[in-house]
Amino acid sequence: MTAPVVPHLRTEDGQIARALLVVEGLTTSFPTRGGVVTAVDGLDLTVNEGECLGVVGESGSGKSVTFLSVLGLVRPPGTVTARRLSFAGRDLLALSEEARRDLRGREIAITMQDALTALNPAFTVATQITETLLAHGRAASMAEARRAAVEIMGLVGIPAPGKRLDDYPHQFSGGMRQRIMIAIALACRPRLLIADEPTTALDVTIQAQVLDLIADLRRDLGMSVVLITHDLGVVAEHSDRVLVMYAGQVVEAGRTRDVIDRPLHPYTRGLLASMPSLEDLDRPIQPIPGQVPDPTRLPAHCRFFDRCGLADEACRTPVPLAPAGPGRAVRCVRPGEPVDA
């Protein structure tokens, strides 16, 4: 068995950063009436201590399912297999469900995509934050949990947190609800925060505030962050490294500035070409032609084949994720070649 390609982040002194989360060979499938949907297929990734890893791709590419699988939140009839799932040196595959449940929230936390639906409208903010603290033993009493809840609400920028503690979610704006979601996730000071589309349904100004908040908390608390998004612009500004996913696979990985400045996979270049540019307002937006392959009938060859301007007969075989320079990997037989070559 060959070693998986998992690019690492190097520190300023050239040392390889310590891995916090390591995933090898992750596959997640769901049976449906139309056949088995392989949402994640043989995925490898590493999240290093203190870094922000951006995970980008179209809806349905497997971004969210990847981390729900890591957290043990995929329920039957969905199935999850992996060669290795480790967090801080612990084998997640060997943990009991009780131990895995204790890990969630305490050391790994996740914010869901839509705070309006993720927060329970029937309970106050106080109830939703304090239950996390009490469940994980971070507070010995309700009084202590409420004091901690006020502190964490202040940390995420909720004005007058002591007065807002007993409000219900509908009494907060969209941006404030997102901050409440982050407060719940950070209540136990986790080592890893998974932020799943944290700016969904927010206007541009509030989006920037939420992303800046996550960056500030990452620095102040020394935690690692996984930023799941469909927006390469968000990744470019906030992430150290990026994984680009397509149809359940990683198609490109590397330092964010390297991937943005010199994308190697045609899909990554397509994502960048489909974004408006403030530097070149006259540049036309170029959508990626075609459609994502049917997840119940994924081809054995390159999954981007039918949408790629570089596709040729060499692409009609399975394409592995291969090293492409220091800290980089790409799943393409013609990486970096211009489409008109």
Rank of each mutant, 00 (worst) to 15 (best):
V259R: 02
P77S: 14
P320W: 05
G34M: 12
R147F: 01
G42V: 06
Y267A: 07
Q15P: 00
I108Q: 03
A145N: 03
L281S: 12
T27I: 10
M153Y: 01
R262F: 11
R297W: 00
T2G: 02
V36W: 04
L119H: 04
V74W: 01
A148G: 03
I158Y: 06
G327S: 02
L213N: 07
T38M: 07
R297V: 06
Q291I: 08
D220Y: 14
P293R: 13
V80C: 05
C188M: 05
R255M: 13
R106A: 14
T124M: 01
I260N: 08
C52V: 15
G157N: 13
G137W: 00
V204R: 07
P31D: 13
A300E: 14
L186T: 06
E97A: 14
A140D: 15
R138Y: 10
A300S: 14
P169E: 02
T38R: 14
Q178F: 06
P320R: 06
C315L: 12
I182N: 05
R241W: 03
L116Y: 14
N120C: 05
L221T: 12
E337C: 00
P263W: 02
P121C: 07
G290H: 07
P159G: 13
P295I: 00
L155M: 15
I206P: 04
R191Q: 14
R189L: 06
P326E: 14
G254S: 14
T38C: 10
V235R: 10
T130V: 06
R104T: 13
I288F: 08
D294K: 09
L272E: 03
G35M: 11
D294E: 13
T317F: 02
M112P: 04
R10F: 12
D102V: 11
R75T: 10
A201Q: 01
I180L: 12
P318A: 08
D312M: 12
H230G: 06
E237H: 15
L71Y: 01
G57N: 12
L92A: 05
S173L: 11
L278G: 00
L193W: 07
L221Q: 13
V55D: 01
L192I: 06
V6P: 00
D240Y: 02
N48K: 08
T132F: 00
A187V: 01
E144R: 05
R189T: 10
A314V: 13
L71W: 03
P76E: 15
A247P: 01
G35D: 09
R257F: 14
L310P: 03
M112A: 12
R191C: 04
I285Y: 03
P289W: 02
V339E: 08
L95F: 06
P31G: 11
